[in-house]
């Protein structure tokens, strides 16, 4: 899965879960201040990302550091690349 694929899937989670216009979801947008999310939304963001990428994100401490949409993409890229090859095949198969 390319970085672009990952970004696209993450954006889909934002659009579906938080009813956001795709065009306003940019790397520098703050999740709380710019995109209107709150702490409960972050829980559902994690659940939504887990569902798409088939990874248990709660065991990765980096997930707690996300502040912007770009942070989410970077953290997810890093986590996905840490997955065993077998897992990446599953993720790719989920495209």
């Amino acid at each position: 899965m390319t970085d672009s694929d990952i970004r696209s899937k993450i954006k889909e989670v934002f659009v579906k879960n938080f009813e956001l216009d795709e065009n306003i979801i940019q790397d520098d947008k703050l999740l709380f201040d710019d995109l209107g999310l709150d702490s409960l939304d972050i829980v559902d963001l994690i659940v939504g990302l887990q569902r798409v990428f088939k990874i248990d994100l709660r065991k990765y401490s980096e997930i707690k550091s996300i502040r912007t949409f770009g942070d989410v993409c970077n953290v997810m890229n890093k986590i996905i690349k840490e997955q065993p090859d077998e897992m990446n095949k599953i993720i790719d198969g989920h495209k």
Partner: peptide, 9 residues
Amino acid sequence: KNMSSVSGM
């Protein structure tokens, strides 16, 4: 079979 799949809502 995974509690973490349940939405916080």
